[in-house]
Amino acid sequence: MLKPSFAFARRPLTFLGEVLLSAGAAFGGRRRYRAQDAARVLADTSARAVGIVCLVNFLVGAILAFVGAVQLLKFGAGIFVADLVAISVAREMAAIITAVVIAGRTGAAFAAELATMQTNEEVDALEVLGLPAMDFLVLPRVAALLLMMPLLFVFACLAGLVGGMAVASVMLDLSPAAYMNRTADALAWTHLGLGAAKSLVFGALIGMVGCYHGLYAQRNAAGVGVATTGAVVTSIVAIIVIDAVFALVANTLGI
């Protein structure tokens, strides 16, 4: 009775080890996936995701500016809305909101696609042909998110700052030039670096969680839905936990 439980507990660690070994082999020149497949995944995780990422982060920046302006106007410190939006977007919100959006959009798609392939026994067919699923299916998806998440983070930061500026211009009658000057004074490279580091970790996490749930899905129609839901829920919970770890480490290091 204990053996299945231990096997289930070891499964994520085994999956992580296989991903790392596959990545090492790819860096060594032993690539086992097609370039066109990698290009398709890159397009799905970058250009086709920019619109929704920018829209959501624009609204988040606008909400932060609105809430901050309501409170700071009571103390005659409305100009500091720019500081609030800039630091919170760069350090926290851009990376987290983008990761949540990508988890619901791309991570779920990875899980559903691989779970469907598992149901149709396509993964087994690839293995028979000598194409390991880890090399042919998982690695391109994880690498695509690892590469594209920092780029999406940059767009998210810009969208969040523009959203904050739009609200500040209306509520506080601040000129765009004054708002951007204050933003430039408040932002530091450490804020942006911390957010970019989070986006890298979140990208790898979402890619691996989505592929993990897809590959280990039950081979039936219900298994596809369970895998998709599990990928999204696990990714979002893990994103929050990792962000808390980042916050503790950053506070300890004085960043």
Rank of each mutant, 00 (worst) to 15 (best):
L2Q: 15
K3G: 00
P4L: 12
S5F: 14
F6I: 13
A9S: 04
R10S: 04
R10E: 09
P12F: 09
T14K: 05
F15S: 15
G17R: 14
S22F: 05
G24I: 09
A25Q: 15
G28D: 09
G28N: 12
R30I: 08
R31D: 01
R32Q: 15
R34L: 09
A35S: 05
Q36V: 07
V41H: 03
D44V: 00
D44P: 01
V50P: 05
G51V: 03
I52Y: 05
L55E: 06
L55M: 12
V56M: 15
V60M: 13
V60G: 08
I63H: 01
L64G: 00
Q71V: 01
G76F: 04
A77Q: 14
I79T: 08
I79G: 02
D83L: 00
V85F: 03
S88C: 03
S88H: 06
V89P: 03
R91T: 09
A94V: 02
A95P: 13
I96W: 06
A99H: 14
V101S: 07
T106S: 15
A108G: 11
A112Q: 03
T119N: 06
E121T: 10
A125I: 01
L126R: 10
L129E: 08
L129K: 00
L131W: 10
A133Q: 12
M134G: 03
D135H: 14
L139G: 04
A144W: 03
M148F: 14
M148Q: 11
M148G: 05
L151M: 13
L152S: 11
L152H: 10
L152A: 13
F155C: 14
F155R: 12
L158C: 10
A159K: 01
L161M: 13
L161H: 11
A166F: 08
A166E: 11
S169T: 12
V170C: 04
V170E: 11
L174S: 06
A177D: 02
Y179M: 10
M180L: 15
M180G: 02
M180I: 14
R182H: 10
H191P: 07
H191F: 00
L192W: 01
G193I: 10
G195E: 02
A196S: 02
A196Q: 06
K198Y: 06
F202N: 09
A204L: 15
L205Q: 12
M208F: 02
G210E: 07
G210L: 08
C211F: 01
Y212G: 04
H213Y: 12
L215I: 15
N220R: 09
N220G: 14
A221D: 04
A222M: 12
G223I: 02
V224Y: 09
T228H: 11
V233S: 06
T234L: 09
I236L: 05
I239Q: 05
I242Q: 00
A244Q: 11
V245Q: 05
A247H: 06
A247W: 06
A247G: 07
A250R: 00
